[in-house]
């Protein structure tokens, strides 16, 4: 598992850890049932406090991405990638909703909105 932290980004460290773990689960880098480094090992490797890694892991566990097994450690949940996908789909929904509302304020018609979407998808494909 590779985690790179940024100090100056303004994003709390525990959050950075969470997001990077989630990304790796989604991409398959972290497989189902794979064991994560222990709280203390991770803290030591990243040179951060144990409480920070504890918070990251606890929140990941609460959200259902990983599970702690007494005496053994933390493991990636099989449903991990599913949960992340759901989260991302929700994000798409939210963003689309705000885009629709902004379009309304800008007096964009439905057709113009669809055209815009198609254009942007083309641009994304070509990048």
């Amino acid at each position: 598992m590779n985690i790179i932290l940024s100090n100056g980004s303004g994003v709390p460290i525990y959050n950075q850890i969470k997001e990077q773990i989630k990304a790796q689960v989604l991409s398959g880098e972290l497989g189902e049932g794979e064991m994560l480094p222990s709280l203390r090992q991770l803290a030591k490797d990243l040179k951060i406090s144990v409480l920070t890694t504890t918070r990251a892991y606890n929140e990941l566990e609460a959200e259902g991405f990983i599970q702690s097994q007494q005496g053994k450690g933390f493991f990636v949940m099989p449903s991990g990638s599913e949960l992340i996908r759901e989260q991302l789909i929700r994000e798409v929904e939210e963003n689309l909703t705000s885009a629709i509302q902004a379009a309304g304020r800008a007096s964009l018609s439905e057709a113009e909105l669809y055209d815009l979407l198609r254009l942007l998808l083309e641009v994304e494909k070509n990048d």
């Binding site: 203390r40 030591k44 040179k47």
Partner: peptide, 12 residues
């Protein structure tokens, strides 16, 4: 020093 202290508490 920081590294040694982190290593020191590693066993919990």
């Amino acid at each position: 020093f920081s590294e040694i202290l982190q290593d020191y508490i590693k066993d919990g």
